[in-house]
């Protein structure tokens, strides 16, 4: 298959960490079905601030599922501070790259991780420098990863893309 590399295909076929953690220490959701992808991530954190388990559920395309799988793999065993340092680029590199048009799908994962940690921090009264300025409910251009799904009915030139 030419569109994606073998790693992405393998993770789509056999994704790791699918599911929900029962009584998680933190839980976050990012994206929306309207935009075509929505990732929910739940984490378990021990007394040393180490993420001991992470699970995901994702509505989305192949690369969104593969990114979710690899991102959860990447945070298990890391401290919360380390996990917060994970960027889209890290997720992308770990996947071995995605087609240019699909890169936005990996943005979902790092944001969902942050959202889950934010929830953990809120519930446990913790603060992390990596969460500074982060608002899981922000709805600006940057955080909707380019989702622009208003009705695309051709009514005039400007609306035909």
């Amino acid at each position: 298959m030419a569109l994606y590399n073998d790693k992405v295909i393998d993770l789509l076929t056999n994704p790791h960490n699918v599911g929900d953690i029962e009584s998680p220490d933190g839980e976050g959701t990012y994206g929306s079905p309207v935009c075509g992808d929505m990732m929910k991530i739940s984490i378990k954190v021990d007394e040393n601030d180490v993420i001991t388990d992470a699970k995901f559920r994702t509505f989305g395309c192949g690369s969104a599922i593969a990114s979710s799988s690899i991102a959860t793999d990447m945070i298990i065993g890391k401290t919360v501070d380390e996990a917060l340092k994970i960027t889209n680029k890290d997720v992308l590199d770990e996947l071995g790259g995605l087609p240019a048009i699909k890169i936005h799908c990996s943005v979902l994962a790092d944001h969902a991780i942050k959202s889950a940690i934010y929830d953990y921090a809120q519930k446990h009264g913790k603060t992390y420098s990596g969460l500074e300025g982060f608002d899981p409910n922000a709805d600006d251009e940057d955080t909707n990863h380019g989702c622009d799904m208003e009705l695309h009915l051709p009514k005039s030139l400007s609306e035909i893309k």
């Binding site: 298959m1 569109l3 994606y4 295909i9 789509l12 076929t13 075509g36 992808d37 509505f59 989305g60 395309c61 192949g62 969104a64 599922i65």
Partner: peptide
């Protein structure tokens, strides 16, 4: 419903 078409397409392709 509740799933995305590209993922369906890829898994069917396999």
């Amino acid at each position: 419903k509740y799933i995305e078409g590209e993922a369906i397409l890829l898994l069917l392709d396999m």
